[in-house]
Structures are given as structure tokens and as C-alpha cells.
């Protein structure tokens, strides 16, 4: 199992296992921040969602995530970064994304974790399709995600 860097995978993952490995690898770091995105059971329109399918552009996702991590490491004094992102078919409650940042102190870890999520949402070539009782629909990008990513420019 790769313990640093980014990984996009079709297999389910357990955030607690990822965090345990990340913490054990970074005992010199005083602060670790994490974010877990999980599948909601309700769409933006209030419809009940039974399943979500995530599609990605593999070659580009690998490049983009590696660049995001390099950018975060340039901006903050980070000891380590890990991103795990699911693709394939998910059920409500399944983890979609896990981001962990390790640093000597909390400020860099917090900020870098938020930066990585904001940029990932607007740059990583990944698309969600939700399936509910009324059919399946591609999730539309939120303008608020662009605004949040723009704060870091």
C-alpha cells in the first residue's frame, strides 16, 4: 500500500486505516489535519439517492493530484500529504475522498488540507452521477466551489 502521495482507486477504502498508516509514518509531525468526503443520501434537489458512480480521466487525474500536492508543499511547510479518491459505484455513507496533511504545527496542516480539497474540487478530472428513484443525473458543478478555490490564488 502506498502511504504518501495521491491514489485514485475503484476499491473501497477505510479512512481510519489510512489515517493510522499516515500517523505512524509521520511521528515527527506535531499536527495532522484530515478531511473525509462521504457520499450523501440526498441530492442537492432533496431527492433520495441510492447510489453514486464516479468517473475519472486516469492519466490526467494522476498528473493533477501530483501537481496539487506539489503546490501545497510549496505553499506550506508540510512533512507529508496523502490523498485517496474513490471512483466506481458508491453507496450512501461510503467515503469518497480522504485528505491528510502533516506538519510541525497545526496552521499549515489545516490550511493545506482545505486548499487541497478546494483545488481538488475544481481541477481533478472526476465526475459524479447520482442515481435515485427518479433516475440518474450527473451532478452539476457548484459556482461556490470556484469561489472557494479562487480564494487561494
Amino acid at each position: 500500500m502506498m502511504v504518501s502521495g495521491a491514489r485514485v482507486q475503484a476499491e473501497p477504502f477505510d479512512p481510519s486505516v489510512e489515517l493510522k498508516a499516515f500517523s505512524a509514518r509521520n511521528v515527527k509531525s506535531g499536527g495532522i489535519a484530515t478531511f473525509i468526503g462521504q457520499m450523501r443520501d440526498t441530492s442537492a434537489d432533496g431527492e433520495t439517492i441510492n447510489a453514486m458512480t464516479l468517473e475519472h480521466y486516469p492519466a490526467m487525474a494522476d498528473v493533477q493530484l501530483a501537481e496539487l500536492i506539489a503546490e501545497a508543499k510549496q505553499r506550506w511547510p508540510l512533512d507529508d500529504v496523502r490523498i485517496v479518491h474513490r471512483v466506481g459505484t458508491l453507496k450512501p455513507g461510503d467515503p469518497i475522498v480522504f485528505v491528510a496533511t502533516a506538519s510541525a504545527h497545526r496552521e499549515a496542516a489545516f490550511h493545506a488540507c482545505e486548499f487541497l480539497m478546494d483545488w481538488l474540487k475544481t481541477k481533478a478530472p472526476i465526475w459524479k452521477k447520482e442515481s435515485g428513484a427518479t433516475g440518474a443525473a450527473w451532478v452539476e458543478a457548484k459556482t461556490d466551489d470556484d469561489r472557494r478555490a479562487g480564494r487561494w490564488r
Binding site: Y57, M60, I96, K121
Partner: peptide, 11 residues
């Protein structure tokens, strides 16, 4: 290689 896609919605 040129790829076309809608605005991304990962994360």
C-alpha cells in the same frame, strides 16, 4: 490527446 468534459465534480 485532447479531452472534452463537463466542469469537474469530484471531491
Amino acid at each position: 490527446e485532447v479531452a472534452f468534459f463537463p466542469p469537474v465534480t469530484g471531491g
